[in-house]
Design a protein around this nucleic acid. Structure first.
Lengths: 195, 195
DNA sequence: TAGGTAAGTGACCGGTCGGTATCATCAAGA
DNA sequence: TCTTGATGATACCGACCGGTCACTTACCTA
């Protein structure tokens, strides 16, 4: 029962994986250290050997969330030939994600809402990450030859945030439809004939 | 010192006002009962005489937030002659609100993010209220003669939610610009020549 | 076979949480 | 004047929070 299969993930990894899941599903403040350890099948001492505090664990989880977004962008766009195709593929993938039953929106945005104080380090860190994600969209828009790359990138970014914010009351199908139409209007206005 | 000016607001009102402010600025879970009472200059017993639990206080505050939104819509639109003008006035007022230094986005959305579990009563209640707000926009769009009232109303609703979600990383000016252009595009596509 | 290291165990800490009990105070109306 | 209802003050409760302690177990490797 307490013997450990030799190829089991290390305690720190199990803890971070459990925290990522629980923080996302229940909220950060609503999730206690002991619950994380119980789900991870680890002990508090293992947690505190790898993370000096709960805040540090939160930071690690959010960093991982941010990295997951980067990888998601890579996977979605790597098969696309042009920057314009990449933008369209991202919109399609985002709309598709809205229908995932486990999906509750951008984890960074959720976290930021839990710390609405602008001076809170987590709030500021999330804002910086979201700005970075926005920059990526703006850069893609620039490469695609958009007349106003900033407007297209910012618009898509705002649209995505709005899509998952509206998910609870619009539902996945409707939110997907509206987001898709909005994105198509943005792309149509900004890109020269489908570039 | 402890004598009470006769025309002072009642304890329940002071408590609810303090809770509304603190819940919005710090978050609901981050705000303790005792802090609410301290700011309200009231005692815990006064709180529990008027509200059976913290959850009940939260519900009362969110109901007030919802009512404030309704009144805001009324104030913004009452001077407008046509439904189309009302929609445009709402967009303008929303953009203007983004520049308010105290503004942190829709309080209901903040609260919903604190309870990401879809089964949580607060989460569901917020979703119902947001759906009601959306219905109001759809009805205005229908009165304005929009080709697809649902698309215009849902689109504006999603755009507003996206605007304040993006506020922390876009900043008020940029978020306002992008939201305004998006709203104008929506209105332009949906409304027959400025109706 | 010895030693180092990662992990587990369970008790424990001070503090804070939401919530309750008891009693005193005070203004206003009958 | 006497009552009454709203409020204040304060001590208290059990539960849980994040975090720490001394100590044990299991595995890998030299």
């Amino acid at each position: 029962m307490s013997t450990v299969p030799a190829d089991r993930p290390k305690a720190a990894e199990r803890i971070q994986a459990a925290a990522k899941d629980l923080f996302y599903r229940q909220g950060i403040r609503a999730t206690g250290i002991e619950e994380v350890c119980r789900v991870a099948d680890a002990t508090k001492m293992s947690l505190y050997r790898s993370y000096p505090s709960k805040d540090a664990l939160v930071a690690a989880v959010l960093s991982q969330d941010s990295a997951c977004y980067d990888q998601w962008v890579l996977e979605v766009t790597q098969a696309c030939a042009t920057p314009g195709d990449k933008l369209r593929a991202l919109v399609t993938a985002m709309v598709h994600k809205l229908s995932d039953a486990e999906y509750r929106g951008c984890p960074l945005l959720l976290a930021q809402a839990e710390f609405p104080d602008r001076d809170h380090p987590t709030h500021q860190w999330v804002a910086a990450q979201k700005a970075r994600m926005r920059d990526g969209l703006v850069e893609l828009a620039r490469q695609a030859g958009a007349a106003e790359p900033g407007l297209l990138g910012d618009g898509l970014s705002m649209l995505m945030d709005g899509a998952w914010a509206s998910l609870p009351y619009l539902g996945p199908e409707r939110a997907g439809q509206v987001a898709r139409q909005g994105a198509e209007a943005l792309l149509r206005d900004a890109l020269p004939q489908g570039g």
